[in-house]
């Protein structure tokens, strides 16, 4: 039994069903050029599909990832799928790797020494493994003495964290203390009068 009419919505669905990686709306436009009627838009088809999956409680949904669209299973089905892929281990990044990636993500393009100035430790080993995993790439050289490499995040970075785009990065916290105290000037940090005991503490008794 085949459907009477081939609709844009179903064509988009078919493409997403087989696509191995997120597929951009531009690419979907190209691929559906022959079926798209006057005034029909891929965007509407995607929204309609997403609504359908929602109301039918499908096990998957359409997610915007890395500047494209992708069918992804819902979180609650994770354990069953993991059973399917027994051999494939989910490998999470280390704390130092996450910190290094965060700095690159927000400050790109950035050199190694600029990253190290923020983290306070050498990052050459981490950069190497992030490059190997294709989460970052070398995007050029900075026009300063020594012409150091500049690093940027790759599309895989967005995929790895499920981010729709770089613009969708969560905003970086402003420099505030939990009490909401804004960064203060150096002058305000001047040592208090000695009687306040600021800075130098009496010997502690443990």
């Amino acid at each position: 039994m085949s459907p009477k009419n081939i609709s844009l919505k179903r064509v988009v669905e078919a493409i997403l069903f087989v696509a191995p990686e997120p597929i951009s709306s531009g690419r979907l436009d190209e691929l559906t050029a022959g079926i798209r009627k006057e005034g029909e838009r891929v965007k509407d088809a995607l929204a309609e599909l997403a609504g359908e999956y929602e109301s039918e409680e499908r096990s998957f949904t359409i997610r915007k990832v890395a500047e494209g669209y992708q069918l992804r299973t819902r979180e609650i089905y994770a354990s069953w799928i993991r059973n399917l892929y027994r051999t494939r281990r989910t490998v999470y990044l280390s704390k130092p790797a996450l910190e290094t990636l965060a700095i690159i993500a927000y400050k790109q393009p950035i050199t190694r020494s600029e990253i190290e100035a923020i983290r306070g430790v050498a990052v050459d080993g981490i950069l190497k493994s992030l490059l190997e995993r294709e989460l970052i790439k070398i995007s050029g050289q900075k026009e300063v003495v020594g012409r150091p490499y500049l690093y940027r995040t790759c599309r895989k970075f967005l995929e790895h964290f499920g981010l729709p785009s770089l613009a969708a990065l969560p905003p970086l916290e402003s420099r505030e203390t939990p009490s909401g105290k804004k960064i203060i000037s150096a002058a305000q940090l001047r040592p208090a009068p000695p009687e306040a005991g600021e800075g130098i503490e009496p010997e502690e008794t443990q």
Binding site: L93, A105, Y106, F161
Partner: peptide
């Protein structure tokens, strides 16, 4: 950036 890294960890 450390806080951002924690957030990335959650996203991951």
């Amino acid at each position: 950036f450390k806080d951002a890294a924690d957030l990335f960890g959650n996203l991951e």
